[in-house]
Write a protein that binds this DNA or RNA. Structure first.
Lengths: 215, 215
DNA sequence: GTTGTATCAGACTGTCTGGTCTGCTGCACT
DNA sequence: AGTGCAGCAGACCAGACAGTCTGATACAAC
């Protein structure tokens, strides 16, 4: 490890993370990574056994930051002096307020880039992603079940997953349209939807018209 | 064009679509595509000027099918004898019911695979995606505004985008967890949320606790 | 039959890629 | 001063890659 603040390994990871998020993993060459990191082939393969090993390190670091972000947000809303429903809404609002800053920092999510490549998933390189998602589900599901005392009406796990789904979907939508404001808008929509659900959870079972659809 | 039902060009597109959705565009070689399509280099470059040209044709075909699917669904719910809110819910329910079949046919969305590669986006290869998304937004936004007479309370465009966001996000979640049932579950969650919103649209403006968050 | 053309087949090529190898440098420890 | 080793530089290599080229085949038009 070098003496200054950013080690060569960290510089490589930083450059690789940006490139992989922007261009995808397969489209990112290690030559380009080391050029952006002002490093060399020797340094790269000293720190990483292979390109796939880089992907694994990338996912590990990203997932760890993701979980830290989650824990911080949960601790924050748990410290608020509001009712359980207010905690859930404050939780979503936290990310809604941070959305523009997030989108200016990164154009998409690393998870999308690596999950797109099946061999990375099959080789276990992306194994750290699922526990991170589960952590989001578990924490938000707990907040939700505290705010939705009526059991059985709503699948709080699936509802909790919907925040992750909104994040990832908004990243895709932003990519497709070039409009980074979609993240904030979609989180706002989610908060509006949750507001009405939490106000009358007993109405959660949707009526079913006799619709039939054959594509 | 050959005489049997599936032309060589279509066989190449079929094979390429599956490979690109599964492995990503950069990770899909034309050698692999022609092998899966039982074709040859000569045939490939006779039908497509370049690999990027294949991507463009792939997106065009996929987006056209996407829009046809949308139009069919809209026509279906517009023919139902239900109130405007019932149409919206029937619309979502249509895709909820088709979710398992969809997920068994394809493991992800082509849009995700091609949007991940920035050079495809920058070169205009993915230009057909945005109009397709806009079509979804416009159609669903109209259904929503008919069901939400109070103007100004809800951004129906953003709310309409949330269906697309749910689709794409659920694809990502399924990839990450290996559980294809997430698509159906997430569409069900969306329908529950819309049910409560449509039942009391006047409560849509979320209260704002004094939360502040510095990541 | 001849010509023309659309549709292919597959060998070939130049470039790019992940990965290896040899060696250099500077610091730690004795 | 000598030794060892982590950290790094960059030349190098074998394979994979997108794209080219020369033809072969089949069929239509005349």
């Amino acid at each position: 490890m070098s003496r200054d603040g950013s080690s060569t390994r960290e510089r490589i990871l930083d450059a690789a993370e940006r490139l992989v998020i922007d261009n995808g993993f397969a489209a990112t060459s290690v030559d380009r990574v080391i050029a952006d990191a002002s490093s060399s082939k020797g340094a790269f393969f000293h720190h990483f056994q292979s390109k796939n090993d880089l992907a694994k390190a990338l996912v590990e670091r990203y997932a760890a930051a993701d979980r830290a972000h989650l824990d911080e947000a949960v601790a924050h809303v748990r410290a608020l002096d509001v009712d359980p429903a207010g905690r859930v809404l404050a939780f979503v609002e936290l990310f809604e307020r941070g959305a523009d800053e997030l989108m200016s920092a990164q154009s998409s999510c690393l998870y999308v880039s690596v999950l797109t490549e099946r061999d990375l998933v099959n080789s276990g390189t992306t194994a750290d992603i699922e526990p991170a998602i589960t952590a989001w589900r578990d924490q938000l599901s707990r907040l939700l079940s505290e705010a939705l005392p009526e059991e059985g009406t709503v699948d709080t796990d699936a509802l909790a997953d919907h925040l992750f789904v909104t994040f990832e979907g908004a990243f895709i939508l932003s990519r497709a349209t070039g409009d980074k404001a979609h993240m904030r808008r979609q989180l706002h929509v989610l908060r509006q939807l949750l507001t009405s659900l939490l106000a009358r959870p007993h109405a959660a079972s949707a009526r079913a018209p006799k619709a039939r659809f054959n594509p």
